[in-house]
Design a protein around this nucleic acid. Structure first.
Lengths: 240, 240
DNA sequence: GCCCTTTTGCGACAGTCCGATACAATTTTC
DNA sequence: GAAAATTGTATCGGACTGTCGCAAAAGGGC
């Protein structure tokens, strides 16, 4: 972390948001507060945020969809606040890929510890800090647009990706030339653990290849490592 | 993670350390054991360790300071074993930089799940720039692309390599003109020890020759050293 | 050179892993 | 709430890899 980490607390309840903000500031963090998703987006457009603490139960735009957007478009670290532990497991694991969660009512010291833990893990990851997240990466004959969730071909025609395909391609594009096991890919895309004979990833790979590869029978972009997993074998370079 | 992950268990209590080691080995992991911090440091000097399981409550050098040292100096993944579930312990554990913790008495299956989760995340962090992974090396009439996992012939046509062939060729190309025994090759390619009459390498060599050599009966690239093993006999030079 | 032992080459085979299709379950959209 | 799209599961055929076995080659003693 170059300076003091900047935390954004998003909670519609003032009596949670503000004391929590004061506590985190007292612990040496920079803090911004937002009462809703819209306000949060506006804030993030103007400021570099390192981590978001987000109450999932908010009126208006669902906290979950905001979380998903943050994770997918900007790879922003997120800690969820939730009322029930069972929900939290499901949410963190299956749906949105938050980095951690804390159940309300929470112990501030524990929340702080989790913030630090997540920041430590997150700082080794490259991250597009701008809320616009209009990063574009080029590989093979494609341009991958993280903000618009699509790949654009050489002819300029956009190829729409489904949510799972987007998450899979995101995971790959950020880790070119690394062999990723099925377990890792499942964790990166769905946050869940593999079942004994889980072939879900194989299928997603197959579908992604059908869309991206010139010759899906002889893949040149996503290659299979027999007994090991898959590799993104193409060069990845930033696109204007 | 070249092959099976190597776990180091550090606990002064033999009746925890040894059963746990056996359990993890039975689950397919390589395991080393240490009774204290000094022994652990010595072990790590000689072996490549992928993850440490550490009991925080040990006499002598404090487990926590060892943990901090591991995290800071080597960025080693660490799972703590702790006696008490109190918040304080968790916080200290997380602040000290452990990746996870398990409260004693623990369920071995849960510990295994956490080991796998931590390894998964540790090995799926995007690399900054791993040496060699992007290199292209030329030998004979071939160009070997480590990143794309293929060899390209003089005609520019890529020759697909299977996973085992790729690992074998990688081992050779990084050690040209060195005689490598079957044991060494097996360790380099599969990370396993040879069985009494293990001929797996012979076969892979044969298959690799069929793909690379002009005249597989008179190999010019991978030569046999009778009674010794094999040598990569071609010049290796960087390719643009 | 000849014979014997040791070592290596390689075709054949079986177990495991993977690709693709079909289909069922789930989620999203209208 | 039904239709459509997306996503997970089952299954079959093909590819990869280790083991086996036998023939060929290399080395050593004579």
């Amino acid at each position: 972390m170059d300076a003091t980490p900047h935390i954004l607390v998003i909670d519609d309840q003032r009596d949670i948001r503000e004391p929590l903000g004061r506590y985190l500031e007292k612990q040496g963090l920079r803090v911004s507060l937002a009462a809703g998703a819209a306000e949060a987006r506006e804030l993030m457009r103007r400021q570099a945020i390192d981590l978001v603490i987000l109450d999932v139960m908010m009126p208006g735009e669902d906290g979950l969809s905001l979380c998903r957007h943050l994770r997918e478009s900007a790879n922003m670290p997120v800690i969820l606040l939730t009322a029930m532990a069972e929900d939290a497991d499901r949410i963190v694991g299956l749906e949105v890929g938050a980095d951690d969660y804390v159940v309300k009512p929470f112990n501030p010291r524990e929340l702080l510890a989790r913030v630090k833990a997540v920041l430590r893990r997150a700082t080794s990851l490259p991250r597009s800090r701008e809320a616009g997240a209009d990063d574009r990466l080029a590989f093979d004959r494609w341009v991958f647009d993280l903000g618009r969730r699509e790949v654009v071909g050489a002819d300029g025609i956009a190829l729409p990706l489904s949510a799972a395909e987007f998450r899979l391609l995101s995971a790959f594009v950020q880790r070119p030339r690394m062999v990723l096991s099925r377990d890792q890919l499942l964790d990166l895309t769905s946050g869940r653990d593999a079942q004994p004979f889980d072939r879900a990833i194989d299928n997603q790979i197959s579908r992604l290849r059908k869309k991206l590869e010139t010759d899906p029978k002889n893949p040149a972009i996503v290659k299979t490592v027999w007994g090991g997993g898959y590799v993104f074998a193409a060069d990845v370079r930033p696109a204007p």
